[in-house]
Nucleic acid binder design. Structure first.
Lengths: 393, 393
DNA sequence: CACTTTAGTTCATGACTCGGACTATATGAT
DNA sequence: ATCATATAGTCCGAGTCATGAACTAAAGTG
């Protein structure tokens, strides 16, 4: 039922099959050419030709023949770790970060610069980010890894390479993609931090559902604000104006107080960090965690209450989107031991679903977004190797 | 970023281009071959060949040459009204319905049988539906219209041709697709009534956004229950287990009473027909409409209150899904004059969105789902004409 | 050491689309 | 009238790419 918009030509056929083969290699490596042929439905001869293109492009490598049961041993194919790499960057309220990931998803460079960026001059922060990116690029070059591009995680709404607004950072109309692109010479994309965290969690979080990686889930990131990333069929769901997934502003109390967003009774207003800290009567998240650990009742009550509100929001998410799992990330991951019991109870109190989604806890912490950003770059090459071949020829 | 799963072969290339050309003809008819070539990016010679296949398959027809500015006049192409047709069926709480639609979307047969199907023997109702389908098929045959298939709208959850559960009809595990298929000799699909109503509204409702048909919206159908259909990029969004879009069970009152679904404070429990009628102290929806028309305060209050609750649910839908519009259908369309002011106010009270989606009212009434069902069948042929060519050869 | 089994390559065949040459049919200028 | 120009559509040779069968390669088995 998909509306087709592009003509199918011979080049497109080859591009599609290159992607098919490379995707198979990425998913189940090591594999032989014969296995790829069997899994994809292509013939052995076609696969041979396609693979030789991918090898000469440096995206796939052959390794030592592995003996099979009988017959001629298969030459194993896998993604080439030295083929290309992707640069992930992140601007956030209290840190800047950079990560370089190779084709296999392995991190090859990692740097975090902690500093409160609220109130700082925007140009200064951008300059810091560009410097961080250039250092990462130099390190990558010294490893003889060509960078394919960069992706920046931003805690707010982005449209076509520009930051439109970031509620908790106070930015508006910043041409961040251009700035980083000029500073590094790379193609740069911008994307919402919550969406990238969700993707990072999918690719690198190690969660599984029925033996396969999660493909339909909602990722909740409790940073200063509460963000949400919706992943459907392995892809981020953005809505009509790239504003989808704003879990923090789902209504959890119809008669609730006014939120900074202009609405009333939003989840973020009722269960955001500010509210939890105030109710627990502590100053920082670290203090809150310590208070919970020593069994402080005010802290435990504040967290449980936030968990209940979170459950109300998630109940609506579950009935509307029917995901297979919910992943709690950011501060919610840290608070999970005291938060999730209340959340799970609240979800089941508010839904009648026969098959409730699983409630998982993120293992990546605050790295999820940068790693997702770097992953986005290399995944793009895996999804369309023909474009990469065309660029380097 | 899409994961490719099928090899691209020559036949697939042609199939894709047939769909591309037919889609162009469907979208902008009448068109000339030259225009199709310009819009699709295919060459004139390829388009000629593809069009001649589509004409000999009876899907496209040539009409009289229309004079252009200069040069040789173009032969106009359009969808053939006599090519194929789709049968849409609907089982609902208080009626059965059948509609036949030709390729152009024009209804060629329409029949509704009103009768309360609650409590009736399931086999009897199925037999009635099959009889309705056979009568429709006979009428279609007498018009020399070949039926391509059928689609049944069901007020509940369906999985692979079987009804899993219908809360308001009390059915469970009914192999409806098989029953109708055996009775008519057609390929039969089952689909949720709310989803089909949303599609019907998109294809036949006449709504527009920026000059183009709506492609990202949420359709709310207020029948006995409250259903929701989410359309994203022109396609129904189903979620991981086909359970997405259950707007009726979004939480609108965290401390609300228990709902029939097992949850608490669901929209349907707070603003469903049962609740509205009870609060307005009238017996039927017709009575309610009359009461509203003559300005009865209890009725007006009951409807406004439902509108407020609906607004809370829609506020969450808007922040989560970011649609371009909300379409109110079913009973909500009838009650729109008294309902929408409260709903719109409630939405803006609970969201801080800069660009609130438009709140539209359905023009199709309770026909939306059957027409959507019939449309689904013909759209499938338009989206994949190669499959149709293969079947008839 | 022949036989079987599996992996991967080679090459002729065929199904496409492309692109340019060609025909058809109109309008407008001379 | 006649020619130039513009546009629609067809025809056919050329090029691209997957297929499928025959072939080579490299192991294990009896």
């Amino acid at each position: 039922m998909t509306v087709r918009t592009e003509p199918a030509q011979h080049a497109g056929m080859r591009a599609s099959n290159l992607a098919l083969v490379l995707g198979e290699v990425a998913r189940t490596s090591p594999v032989s050419r014969a296995q790829v042929a069997a899994h994809t439905g292509l013939t052995k001869s076609s696969v041979s030709g396609l693979v030789s293109d991918l090898i000469s492009a440096g995206l796939v490598q052959e390794s030592a023949p592995a003996a099979t049961e009988r017959g001629r041993p298969a030459t194993a194919l896998s993604l080439a770790p030295g083929g290309i790499a992707g640069l992930g960057l992140e601007v956030n309220v209290d840190y800047l970060a950079a990560v370089v990931t190779d084709l296999t998803g392995m991190p090859r460079y990692h740097q975090v610069v902690r500093r409160d960026n609220r109130g700082r001059d925007v140009d200064e922060v951008v300059a810091d980010l560009v410097e961080l990116a250039r250092t990462a690029a130099r390190s990558t070059a010294s490893q003889a890894l060509p960078l394919s591009g960069a992706c920046v995680a931003v805690p707010g709404l982005t449209v076509e390479g520009a930051v439109v607004r970031t509620p908790n950072l106070g930015w508006a109309r910043v041409d961040l993609a251009d700035a980083v692109g000029e500073g590094t010479g790379l193609e740069v994309d911008l994307e919402n931090e919550a969406n990238l965290a969700a993707l990072g969690e999918m690719w690198f979080g190690g969660h599984e559902h029925d033996g396969a990686p999660l493909r339909d889930f909602v990722h909740v990131s409790g940073e200063i604000g509460i963000g949400g990333g919706i992943v459907i069929g392995g892809e981020v769901f953005r809505g009509a104006h790239a504003g989808a997934g704003e879990l923090g502003h789902v209504v959890v109390a119809a008669d609730g107080p006014r939120c900074a967003c202009g609405g009333h009774g939003c989840l973020e207003r009722m269960a955001g960090q500010q509210e939890i800290l105030a109710r627990a009567q502590v100053a920082t998240m670290a203090d809150l965690t310590r208070a919970c650990e020593r069994g402080d009742q005010a802290a435990l009550d504040a967290v449980a209450d936030a968990g209940r509100h979170l459950g109300v929001a998630l109940a609506s998410v579950i009935t509307l989107l029917d995901p297979t799992a919910i992943v709690l990330g950011g501060a919610f991951a840290t608070l999970a031991p005291w938060l999730t019991p209340a959340t799970a109870a609240s979800i089941s109190h508010h839904t009648g679903a026969a098959e409730p989604p699983r409630l998982l806890v993120s293992g990546l912490g605050s790295d999820a977004a940068v790693r997702g950003a770097a992953g986005t770059v290399v995944r793009r090459v895996i999804a369309d190797p023909a474009a990469h071949l065309a660029r380097r020829s």
